[in-house]
């Protein structure tokens, strides 16, 4: 069980570091979504099931949707040919 938890924690750190380096914003948001899902599993292993329910609904659902809606509003979701719309040319 300890090994499992350490793997999940390492995955969390890897997700956070990759969010720092990912250029395309949609990918960063999706990685953040998987970060939240792993966090929900960790709440369960910390014997806090109510936190797991909340984090699963909030992190994977509502926060991600708000981020993706905001990206849609700033036209970061389109793949137009002239330039890849990453963090530096939005």
């Amino acid at each position: 069980m300890t090994f499992f938890e350490i793997m999940l924690l390492l995955f969390l750190i890897a997700c956070a570091i990759s969010i720092f380096f990912i250029k395309r914003l949609v990918n960063a948001v999706v990685v953040f979504m998987s970060y939240s899902a792993i966090m929900a599993v960790l709440w369960l292993s910390l014997e806090s099931p109510d936190l797991a329910i909340t984090e699963a609904a909030v992190g994977c659902g509502i926060t991600t949707l708000l981020f993706i809606l905001a990206l849609k509003k700033v036209n970061a979701l389109k793949e137009d040919g002239e330039a890849d719309r990453d963090e530096h040319n939005i």
Binding site: P49, D50, I53, T54, A57, V58, G61, I62, L65
Partner: peptide, 25 residues
């Protein structure tokens, strides 16, 4: 169910409220 059973089982207003809001979304 999660909202109404908040005092009996894991959950409560905050967890169930986010589930309800997410379902509406």
């Amino acid at each position: 169910y999660v909202v109404l059973n908040g005092h009996l089982s894991p959950g409560g207003g905050f967890s169930g409220g986010t589930i309800l809001g997410g379902t509406l979304i």
